[in-house]
Simulated assay, not measured.
Amino acid sequence: MSVTQVVLLLFIGYIVFTIDKKKKSVPIPVVLLIIGIGLSFIPYFSTVEVTEKIIYEIFLPGILFVSAYKYSAKAIKRHGAVLATLSTLGLMATALLLGLLTYMVGGWFGSISFLGAMVIASILTPTDPVSAVSVLEEAADEQIAEVVDGESMINDGTSIVLFTVLSGMYLGENSFQLTGFLGEFLYVSLGGVIVGVAFGWLCSKAVHITHHHDYQVMLSIIIAYGAFQTAEHVGFSGVLGTVAAGIMLSYEFEHMNREGHYREALSGFWNVVEPSLLALVFLLIGITATPYLASANWIMAIIIFVASIVIRYLIVTAVLAIFHNNRTLDKQKQAFLVSWAGIRGTMSVFLILSLHAKSPEGSEALLSISFSVVVLSLIIQSLGVYPLSRKLEN
């Protein structure tokens, strides 16, 4: 991908953000995705090649840090049990149920192995509610937005571990052992969190060294990408490292006398970086996904997409019933909104591209089905968040 192509894509993103007057009913990621699909038919953009490393090492740390930095540490305390359960046991249960159903449905349309079905399920379990959280904050209970946002940040780390194990089994690289999986999961997850907390705490103290806004912004970039790279270098989860660093920094700022002073410069910078990253990533998703969409079995993709929402609803309902003491009707509304807002996005695309890098020739069916479900999720669920949240809250 050339510098000129990046600049042109940023310019397209700028135009979309500037003229889009209905960000609620027509979320910007949907518009960018559709434009990206259109750009794939233009020879100049059809040559754009996006690798899993570009998504993982350039886009994800920045996007995750912004979400984590804006996320209140008080929300972690309020919803900690729900977030931890949804992001671990809930995600694994969702992957198992969705994998079983995908395997069953795959038998109707062709031949997808059980391990192949489980790989698809692991790709589709992480959530990425970029276009949903801001809408939920305005149209629904703010606590619903906190659950959706918090879960999406944490479950990215879980999904990578799950995908790594299942894709390794699918490609014949390793076998599944429960104790080994749990040990790997705890090692990668806890290690990433420890690295992130250390980075966030140290940098929150270092910010006092200088009162110059520009240098404080530089420090925040070091936190976002430094925590990620450090955690990855020692074998931990870079995703959880960046998330923990952002939340820790936010927590430390909340306990400072001059919180507004420190947040002013960082927010000014990251409020520009975030839409720039989002514009690029959703345009690139559209461009990258198009070749796979042409060969996808859309009936099968639609069934899996609907099933993913139903299964997620059942899991979320069970978790909220255990941890939230609200009225039954409220719990049903909350469960449905949390389920619907669990949109598949950037992390799922990274996992798809990772599978492509590992097995470019032998996984075409899995890639096309996964990409088509991600596109359905981005378009249908994003468009439905605002009207559904308004209807259920009235």
Rank of each mutant, 00 (worst) to 15 (best):
G183R: 14
L320T: 04
E142M: 14
A81C: 08
F65V: 06
E259M: 01
T164R: 08
M300P: 02
A307G: 10
M256F: 13
I34Y: 09
E361H: 06
T85H: 02
K77W: 09
L91Y: 04
F323M: 15
V119I: 08
A140P: 05
L98K: 05
M118H: 00
G13A: 11
L60N: 07
I55R: 01
S159G: 08
M256P: 06
A227P: 00
W201K: 05
G106R: 03
K358N: 10
G106E: 08
L33Y: 01
I194R: 11
T47V: 07
I222N: 09
K331D: 01
S2A: 05
V197Y: 10
W270V: 13
D141Q: 08
L351C: 00
L293A: 07
H208Y: 13
T51S: 15
L162D: 04
I309Q: 00
P360F: 04
I19D: 12
I19T: 12
L89Y: 11
Y170A: 04
I144L: 05
V133E: 02
L89V: 14
L32D: 04
Y56L: 13
R258P: 11
I221S: 07
L178A: 12
K74Y: 06
S363Q: 06
F65E: 03
A227Y: 00
I352S: 03
S46V: 00
I76T: 07
V373H: 08
M256K: 14
S389H: 13
R327E: 15
P126N: 04
A95G: 10
F253V: 09
Y71V: 09
